[in-house]
Design a protein around this nucleic acid. Structure first.
Lengths: 209, 209, 209, 209
DNA sequence: GATGAATGAGTTTTCATTCAT
DNA sequence: GATGAATGAAAACTCATTCAT
């Protein structure tokens, strides 16, 4: 998969290579089953290199979680910021934004993260805080802000924008675990858009002015 | 001469004892971290006994998942069946039913199950089917049926009762992961009821006739 | 080295086999360099068997130390008890007893122990207490008792028998590290007897009545 | 422009810095447990610097052993040379010299050395030769010389001064491991002097003219 | 049917040592 | 000459699984 011949690069940031390799391994096998050996093989580095860069498997895991969470959050927030609140376009834009947002969470990478934190939150509750701060809260905030704008414009009635944001997301995802079988099966973009649309329509019926 | 007090029970359902012991162990530590040794100790049986009854750790796990899923499902379906659809009481009953349903999924046992299948679905996609059939579908079906009754009674407008059921559940749970911090912190019943009520109200605004 | 054909014995005390194998390995390589793998190979058992019997490398080490200390102590005390205090034989018997005692501490096994506790006492001071109680004190006590008898018989002048015992041992060993090169080279019995005799003679000059 | 204050010394005797740092590390942890990393950190040098100066951990160890041995030997020989053989003072001077000599071997540094060679002599018998030549023999020689002088002066009867020297040392140390618990506990100077004195008195009874 | 005792394979982690700069 | 970054080899320890009794 690498682009360079024998040795990818003489001494380039091995750190990033390790993180990139850790993603699929943690994602597919979970924290416990993921062996540092496998990550080292995938990153084409030696095990001690991993330890000198990250200290321990646990710390590598946390760094990876943080990195993915931030990336997912960025994608999701960008999707929200793309929401056009002009009176003519906001309806379609709301469906599009919700779809983009949902898909940001359905990347391989993000699905791995979701599965993994779910599994590991019992072992290390702190991980939840990391993800919440890095990925969850910013998205809710951004979406609540947009919904408030729609409220101010008289297009929606949103007394509690944060609650509305959470409910919009919940509705958008209502059918998703069903069709993707908990992220095990790939989902085509049109199908995702359709189920998200169903959720947004219910949201609109509840909140429209 | 009969059941001596030394050994708890002569040779009674060791099978059940093992399953009962497996629950907390799988739930707290997850599949990987849960050691057969620990389960054997907790069940006060020897390891070979476990293997002779269940064949492998994997199979024991699946049997446990099935058992818990069925139990959770029973609780949830009972909650739905308790939904009084009479014109005078249905509103309050809807909140109560949704709350009971949500709480059935927030038992220690059920939370363990949820975490665990999330973690293991990557390794063994079949586990999703087991849980879906045993726990998810019956509840959706039952709830869709009740919502259809309310539709027929002219109290709600529900063109697609299954979709409505999924959305009602999604809305009821919209704020739950936030307040329970992914099941890490205990949640008082009144608080649960309050957040569920917020979700049901939104549902009603969208679906009321 | 075992007497049985292929597998020494079906399920005989593996525990003892492990201890027997641990001796040479700890003795030759020291605690740190001694690998549990090597001990397992030498004992013809698997590593987990060692761990199930002893819990950890550290505990195996302590059990071994205790066992060797007790055995050395037994040999040494027996040597002292063989000391004939009759007026005619006591001189020769003193040399013999001192020689036997010194040789009890020059077994391969005992030399290993001595080297090892010297090395490890810094890491785990408790180990000194174990050896002292198990091996050192009983020998001193026994020897002091015998010297007191000789004092009572008017053959020696021993106001402080314990001190005298320690000094007798010190004098007996005065040249020993030199000739055995710290236990690295084997020493013939006659040579040992000669150097011990020199020490005993000095002792007698100091203590004779 | 000259020696900047930033770096301790421009390129001064890094070699010595490394040796000074190696002492405590080897002494406290023993050869095996002492990591080159730790030594490098303590010396504020990088690991390759150590290797370019000493070739290997083993060689660094041997150089350190030699250095400490020589220093201990110097202290001990100085103690012996301080022994006043004049008829009036020699008795007290003998106790003082023996005490100083014993204390030279009870420095932290020297105790570390003693423990370490004991531990490593099995692995590398050559180390014994190094220490013997550098530290042991000179002291015995010096002490034997002084005892011979006392013999010539008619104050002692010493047919074999080397043997007498070894015995004097053995007697002086007879109680030492007991009170210092193998070098684990610190020992006050008066206590050391008292136990040494007891040994010297026994020596005198055996050797006085 | 139940078990104590054993094991092969695999885990994370550390260390002495060496390049490329 | 000094170093940051890398590695092969090996350490202690655990686990799911299986015999012989």
């Amino acid at each position: 998969m690498s682009t360079a011949p024998a040795r990818p690069r003489p001494t380039t940031d091995r750190r990033q290579r390790i993180l990139d390799a850790a993603g699929p391994v943690f994602g597919e096998h979970g924290y416990e089953r993921a062996s540092v050996d496998a990550i080292a093989r995938a990153a084409q580095v030696s095990k001690p290199t991993i330890y000198s860069h990250f200290g321990s498997k646990e710390q590598l895991f946390q760094v990876w979680v943080g990195a993915v969470a931030r990336q997912v959050s960025d994608d999701a927030v960008r999707a929200v910021h793309g929401l056009d609140v002009s009176p003519k376009k906001w309806r379609a834009a709301l469906v599009t934004a919700a779809t983009d947002l949902v898909e940001a969470w359905h990347t391989d990478c993000a699905a791995s993260l979701a599965r993994t934190i779910n599994a590991e939150v019992g072992r290390d509750p702190q991980i939840y805080a990391v993800v919440r701060e890095a990925a969850h809260d910013p998205v809710i905030e951004a979406l609540a802000g947009r919904l408030a704008m729609l409220g101010n414009a008289g297009l929606l009635r949103v007394p509690d924008p944060v609650l509305a944001a959470k409910q919009l997301i919940a509705l958008s995802r209502a059918e998703l675990d069903d069709i993707s079988e908990f992220g095990t099966k790939p989902t085509s973009a049109p199908v995702v858009r359709r189920v998200v649309k169903a959720g947004v329509e219910t949201f609109l019926r509840a909140y429209e002015a």
